[in-house]
Nucleic acid binder design. Structure first.
Lengths: 206, 206
DNA sequence: TAATATACATACATGTACGTATGTAAGGCA
DNA sequence: TGCCTTACATACGTACATGTATGTATATTA
């Protein structure tokens, strides 16, 4: 039984390898061109395959996009969401989320959601449902942190928690898209954005 | 010479009337579906015409989109940009811009830029150039206000002015997209976002 | 090693939306 | 009032991308 460490790859290895290559190429393409501008032949070629391989692994373009969306969400959870769990103070957790998100957005795949969300907003489409579900999860998480921080007394009152949480997410994503995840200032501005929207004073000078 | 107040509309009147109807329908469609998902027959029908009328007034789909982009930019300048000119203090001008932008974003046409910017980012496309030009103008304007405010002493030092200005614009647009311009909290959060990104303390309680 | 299943490539069919060419009615000018 | 131009509708051609059907090479199993 040949595994990934063996010289001759097994079928499952081949499948997994090509699948992740296709997924990554599709994620890059989605974040650059959006959904309907994404052409599957280009995706397959960038991954080193043809459309045949793609349709062997994914039932349709929509199925591929859904897989990408959930894959990116998983990566976000692993790379960003985990940072919040390491913090005790909810405000620190929010800062960690913001900075982590900024760093995550330096990867091109991070912009998938914002790139395709407008294409499906308002319509009843599976991709929209997936995006909504993922977004709702993140907003709920942020909202819980804000609620804790308000109980804690470290965050002043203001608009409803859910509104702030949604605004935080949207503002952060817009910020990162604009900065293209390039500058070294992305994390600073992300933290500033969080402070502002929560009603916190600016960070003391280091 | 019959003008718009006359009973029988003149040719120029007819032309202007249908043109603005088509423009508005196209703007709504662009902000909802983006560029490539926008189908011209739907645009024409929503405006009360057919594609024939559209192609009589606009050379191509691209030409129509460009016209929409510049038209929306003009509306923004009239409704939002003018607010900043009324303020003496640069920080107050920035707040006025943020609040005005929030209110502007309650109209569906306001989201045109964010809806189509990802479709052309990275490519060498006339629509991208137009968006870049408009964006550069707004960022420069915001940047000048920030520079004044820093000289003024009312805004602390931090990341480069241009970076903050760009981040401010991106963050605001992301925020407004997320809130869908619905809630009454959009202006509050917009101002909070500006305060945070500038490094200002939260607003004193009214 | 023969037989079968899997991973992928190639070829084909279809639909959709753009752009253009042509036709028709209404306004402008002599 | 007759001719010309403008505003719009209808009809057609075309290109492109998706999805499917078929073909081929590699891996698995007996």
């Amino acid at each position: 039984m040949a595994t990934s460490e063996s010289l001759r790859p097994t079928q499952a290895d081949r499948r997994a390898r090509s699948r992740s290559a296709l997924l990554e190429a599709a994620a890059r393409g989605l974040s650059r061109y959006g959904y309907s501008n994404l052409v599957l032949e280009q995706v397959a070629n960038e991954a080193g395959y043809t459309r045949g391989a793609l349709y062997h692994q994914f039932a349709s373009k929509e199925d591929l996009a859904l897989a990408v969306v959930w894959w990116v969400a998983g990566e976000w959870g692993k790379e960003v969401g985990s940072l919040a769990l390491r913090e005790d103070d909810p405000v620190d957790a929010l800062f960690a989320l913001a900075r982590g998100h900024a760093i995550f957005c330096r990867r091109d795949i991070a912009r998938v959601r914002m790139a395709i969300v407008t294409e499906f907003s308002g319509r009843d489409h599976p991709i929209r449902h997936a995006l909504d579900e993922i977004e709702a999860g993140i907003i709920e998480r942020i909202g819980n942190l804000i609620t804790q921080a308000r109980r804690n007394g470290s965050v002043p009152p203001g608009p409803p928690v859910k509104t702030i949480a949604a605004g935080l997410l949207g503002g952060l994503e817009g910020l990162m898209i604009q900065l293209s995840g390039q500058g070294p200032h992305d994390t600073v501005l992300a933290e500033r954005l969080v402070r502002g929207m929560l009603g916190l004073p600016p960070a003391p000078k280091a």
